[in-house]
Design a binder for these strands. Structure first.
Lengths: 253, 253
DNA sequence: AAGTGGTCTAGACCACAAC
DNA sequence: TTGTGGTCTAGACCACTTG
């Protein structure tokens, strides 16, 4: 294994991939298989180097990329750990709505209300987003997040029925931290990245009522598809955000 | 220079910074000083290693970070180049509005109309965003972008008067590619990163007229502060986006 | 003191582009 | 052929954490 393995594309063209990419893929497989759970340490660089018969530097470069993708967290002197949504410092990593008055003050967790939670059959658009077939079982949840008693976010979310079998309104209400942290613990599904489509819309009657606004109030519509390892979609979420005291914050590199 | 230099914080606590960070800072200074212009190659890794009396690996790690921040682009076999907004593949890097029907079709450049361009004195909020003082000279531009003859984006932007002395509506109309590319060429100012605050709003009368919508049409309000090297703000831009046929696309890592 | 990740070096070789 | 960035190795030492 001292020289890169060869991979061949469908056309027969030989295509190489660097050793460290192959190592990265192997580590990824172990992460995906749950060999190491979120929050737990993965083997040390020396151990992995020995296991894969490569130098420490090669393992290091593989882990560097995994860390850059937030799949893994390095801690000097301690080890490298499987990333998790449960860590206090990076909670609500995917929520970009922040209060206008700096990020603080209302930083305390929002008041959460589960409005609805029911098993359904996937409509065409939900099925497409979740890579299911129309009619497949899905779980639909509607909830409201309030800050300082002001309802600010209304979310509808759809989860594939199979992996989330057993999820109920009670379990949602019972769980404390971020929803994605609970998904990791209870269902072994870790959301790794997400894509959002944002629009400005007016709410329908029900939506306006739940957010305590009039139907003439413009709201941010945020449609998110959250993905696990290997870009498998595991959640469709449609959020309506009030932006009178908050805004969606984005950094462009 | 074989061992890291020492830096001392105000409290006297010795604080180290890795050699490659120091090298990175030195390269950044040269970029900022315009020693190498956008699109031009910077010296090879070997040359830089010799200049700074460090190993190639250390220079490499410094450049790796600069490349990750899009300040520089590596091209195997050719060299490392100062990044630019003029490259065809990464044009409109900061514009996240895409047509609902995939990214294609309307990919051709938008039809641009300069509505207004005038010298002004900075109001309090503009001054704060641009790190100026209230009353300092600024340049204000208003323009409309249309796709397939449908006005879709209305932008007001403010530029600090000093560095953009000589910018007129004529020069804006005359320039071809992205505005930021022109800023690089004509004014030596390269926008490196940006922060956006997004809200849902209703347009005022003038805005609605320019976008050919009613005042009841919800629009995306995108306030952007664009920064040069060292996080110096060089542009405030307030955009109104129609999101009936387009959406703001965001990826969450 | 021992183990972990983090930095730095020196040298070899590979892949790509240009002459 | 030459020069560029890209990969890989081996070994040394540093910084941080834990026992």
């Amino acid at each position: 294994m001292n020289s890169p393995l060869h991979a061949y594309t469908e056309t027969g063209t030989p295509s190489f991939s660097p050793l460290y990419q192959q190592i990265k893929a192997l580590i990824l497989q172990s992460l995906q298989a749950g060999e190491w759970k979120p929050g737990e340490p993965i083997p040390s660089e020396m151990e992995l180097a020995a296991r894969f018969r490569v130098s420490q530097g090669t393992v290091r470069k593989a882990i560097d990329e995994l860390a850059a993708e937030n799949l893994v967290v390095r801690r000097q002197g301690k080890g490298t750990f499987v990333a998790t949504h449960a860590e206090h410092n990076v909670q609500y990593r995917f929520l970009k709505l922040v209060p206008d008055s700096g990020d603080f003050a209302a930083k305390g967790p929002a008041e959460r209300t589960i409005v609805d939670c029911r098993r359904q059959r996937a409509t065409a658009d939900v099925a497409r987003a979740l890579a299911l077939r129309t009619g497949d079982p899905v779980l639909q949840v509607r909830r409201v997040l309030a800050y300082a008693s002001v309802p600010t976010i209304l979310e509808d979310l759809w989860l594939p029925g199979i992996p989330f079998k057993g999820l109920t309104a009670e379990r949602l209400r019972a769980s404390r931290g971020p929803m994605y942290a609970m998904f990791e613990m209870e269902f072994g599904t870790r959301m790794v990245r997400a894509e959002e489509k944002i629009r400005a819309v007016l709410p329908d009657e029900a939506q306006a009522a739940l957010l305590h606004v009039t139907q003439a109030t413009p709201l941010l519509s945020v449609e998110r598809v959250a993905l696990t390892y290997n870009d498998v979609p595991m959640e469709l979420r449609r959020g309506l955000y009030r932006t009178d005291t908050h805004h969606y914050r984005n950094e462009l590199g």
